[in-house]
Amino acid sequence: MSIQHFRVALIPFFAAFCLPVFAHPETLVKVKDAEDQLGARVGYIELDLNSGKILESFRPEERFPMMSTFKVLLCGAVLSRVDAGQEQLGRRIHYSQNDLVEYSPVTEKHLTDGMTVRELCSAAITMSDNTAANLLLTTIGGPKELTAFLHNMGDHVTRLDRWEPELNEAIPNDERDTTMPAAMATTLRKLLTGELLTLASRQQLIDWMEADKVAGPLLRSALPAGWFIADKSGAGERGSRGIIAALGPDGKPSRIVVIYTTGSQATMDERNRQIAEIGASLIKHW
């Protein structure tokens, strides 16, 4: 067993022997301040990774656009098919120029040779490549099948209805392509620590998230040296922004954090800054 596999296998073990965790309302004060600064709703939840206990939450059962955070769930569904012998990570998928959609920095470079399922998941999570996500959605049967996968996990809230990039439209009061912070946090925890996926697939999923290259201005910008984070960000229309993450000190994750916002007129930089400040408060009061 590799060191990384050992780390993920012992996530519940280490967490069980940690000192009790206590909620700190100071972080919620910052979440509410972010709402004021952005002029928009902000949803927040913080779960203990081992027990699933909610440590703090704000608007945990209000719907927010998922945006690209759905790509972690998508690759979880792909990995479940791999575990069941219905898919192979090494299978190569070929596609054409007509398949390319807006923001496809990886797939646009491989029109000639195609990409493997493993490479597509890596591109979808680490670079948020939209064509990679659409190609992977095709392998599982489309958005409705991802929703069905989530329902089978016990998540009857999260739903995907459309493809990239239309799913980022974020129309107010439109339930399409949305989740709730509580539902997303619980589902992410199941994917990373539950028995739904094999140990190898859980490790692969967290490795992809740990290698995320496009979430630097968010929670990662607030992390002290030595902290662990595996995350996936999302951005959408109407001032929408979000991030889902597993993080913790001492090089291992111990909490799940989900943050979503929508309806702001603020710039992307300002949305990023507010999420980073929430992260800084979380870490300060850990």
Rank of each mutant, 00 (worst) to 15 (best):
S96G: 13
G263K: 06
N168M: 06
E175A: 14
L28S: 08
L120R: 00
A183T: 12
F6R: 09
G234P: 00
A215Y: 04
I259Q: 01
N272A: 05
M67S: 10
S128V: 00
Y260G: 00
A34S: 13
G251Q: 11
M153A: 13
E62G: 07
I206V: 14
D36L: 15
I283A: 08
D250T: 11
L47T: 09
Y103K: 02
K32S: 12
Y260S: 02
V82F: 07
N130D: 05
I140V: 09
A183G: 07
L74P: 01
G263W: 04
L282E: 04
L223F: 05
P60M: 13
Q4W: 08
D155A: 01
A211V: 08
E237L: 13
A133R: 00
L146G: 03
I283Y: 15
N98D: 11
T179H: 00
L192G: 02
S96L: 13
S68I: 00
V72K: 00
A183F: 08
R176D: 06
K53F: 10
L223M: 11
E175C: 12
L136E: 01
S2P: 09
L197E: 04
E102N: 10
A245R: 00
G114Y: 05
N50H: 12
G114T: 04
D113W: 07
A200T: 12
A9E: 06
G194K: 09
L10N: 06
A225G: 14
V101C: 10
I229L: 07
S68M: 00
A123D: 02
M115K: 03
L38T: 09
I243H: 02
Y260K: 00
A211M: 10
K144W: 09
T187F: 06
D83L: 02
Y103F: 09
G141V: 04
W208K: 01
D177F: 01
P217S: 10
L55F: 10
F64K: 01
R176I: 06
R271C: 08
M209V: 01
L196R: 15
A230I: 07
H151I: 10
A148T: 14
L219S: 04
L150R: 00
S264K: 05
N50P: 14
R59G: 04
G216Y: 08
L111V: 14
E210Q: 12
E87N: 05
E62D: 10
D269I: 13
G239T: 02
L89C: 05
V214A: 08
T107P: 01
T147N: 11
S2N: 14
T193A: 15
P249F: 05
H151Y: 14
I278C: 04
P60H: 13
A124R: 00
V257S: 03
E26K: 12
Q37E: 14
L188M: 12
A280H: 13
N173R: 14
S57N: 09
Q88S: 13
A235I: 04
L135G: 02
T267P: 14
V31G: 02
V31F: 03
N50E: 14
A235R: 02
D250K: 13
D129W: 00
E166L: 14
T262P: 01
A170C: 13
S57C: 09
G154N: 08
T198C: 10
I140T: 07
T178L: 02
I244S: 03
Q97E: 15
L49E: 03
D83N: 04
M67A: 15
M268C: 05
L49S: 07
V8R: 12
Y44L: 11
D269S: 13
D161A: 06
P172F: 09
T178M: 03
G234M: 05
M1I: 07
W227A: 03
A40L: 05
C121V: 04
F58E: 05
M268L: 12
G76P: 00
G239H: 04
I140Y: 09
A15P: 07
M66E: 02
S281Y: 15
L79T: 02
R176Y: 07
E87S: 06
A9F: 12
R92Y: 10
E195C: 08
D161H: 07
R255K: 12
P181E: 00
R159H: 12
T178N: 03
I229K: 02
P25K: 10
E145D: 11
L282A: 09
P249E: 08
R271A: 11
A235T: 06
R81D: 05
T116C: 07
P253F: 09
Q88C: 10
P217H: 10
Q204T: 14
K109C: 09
G90M: 13
L111K: 08
T198E: 11
R7D: 07
E237T: 11
A15E: 04
V8N: 14
Q274S: 10
A280F: 10
G234N: 01
P165A: 07
S57K: 12
M268S: 08
N173S: 13
T147H: 07
S68F: 00
D36V: 14
L219G: 03
A133H: 01
E166H: 11
L218E: 02
T179I: 01
D212A: 04
I243P: 00
Y44P: 00
E46W: 04
G239P: 01
H156A: 15
L38K: 06
C75I: 07
R202Q: 15
R63I: 08
Y44C: 03
K190D: 15
F149Q: 07
E26G: 12
L160Q: 07
V82T: 09
P60A: 15
E61R: 13
S57Y: 11
G76V: 05
E62I: 06
V106Y: 08
P253W: 07
D250V: 10
L136V: 08
A123C: 08
E61W: 12
A77D: 09
L188E: 01
S254F: 08
S122G: 12
P12F: 13
